[in-house]
Amino acid sequence: MYATPVVVTGFTATRVHKLTPGQKTANRVLATGRAPVEHGFAHLKNWRILTKLRTDPARATQLLRALLVLTNLEVSRGF
């Protein structure tokens, strides 16, 4: 019915442990999917929309999703 939330993190390289090509590709895919969301939140912060948000978290999630969609539309239009 409902999917269990999952946190996906990238792979970290060290001096001793280098990343395999597959891990590098996985990091690239993760960054590609994360970038539009981070840009959307940056725009919302610049517009100061979230400063006066006083609602319960379930409604806030729906509101933020809608705002991110609208923000991405505005940004893609060039405003």
Rank of each mutant, 00 (worst) to 15 (best):
L44Q: 02
E38W: 09
F79H: 15
I49H: 03
N46I: 10
T20E: 03
A60N: 08
G22V: 03
A35R: 13
A58S: 08
L64S: 02
T20W: 01
V16E: 06
L53G: 04
V6S: 11
A60Y: 04
K45D: 14
F11Y: 01
R15P: 14
V8A: 12
P57E: 00
V7W: 07
T20P: 08
M1D: 15
R54K: 04
V8K: 12
F11M: 00
L70F: 10
F11G: 00
A3E: 15
R34M: 08
D56S: 03
G22W: 04
M1N: 11
L64R: 03
A13P: 11
A42R: 13
A58K: 08
L70C: 12
T32Q: 10
E38C: 12
L67H: 08
V16P: 12
G22M: 05
N46R: 12
T4Y: 09
V69C: 15
G40R: 02
K45Y: 13
E74L: 11
V6Y: 12
A31Q: 08
A31P: 15
P57K: 00
T14W: 00
K18M: 06
W47A: 10
G22D: 07
T9I: 03
E38H: 12
Q23N: 02
K24N: 02
R54F: 07
G78V: 01
T51Q: 03
F41D: 10
E74H: 12
L73M: 09
L70T: 09
T25G: 09
T61H: 12
R77H: 12
V6Q: 10
P21M: 00
V6A: 07
S76P: 15
L68Q: 06
R65L: 15
D56Y: 05
Y2H: 15
R54Y: 02
L50Y: 03
L53S: 04
L53Q: 03
M1Q: 12
L68N: 06
A66E: 09
V75E: 07
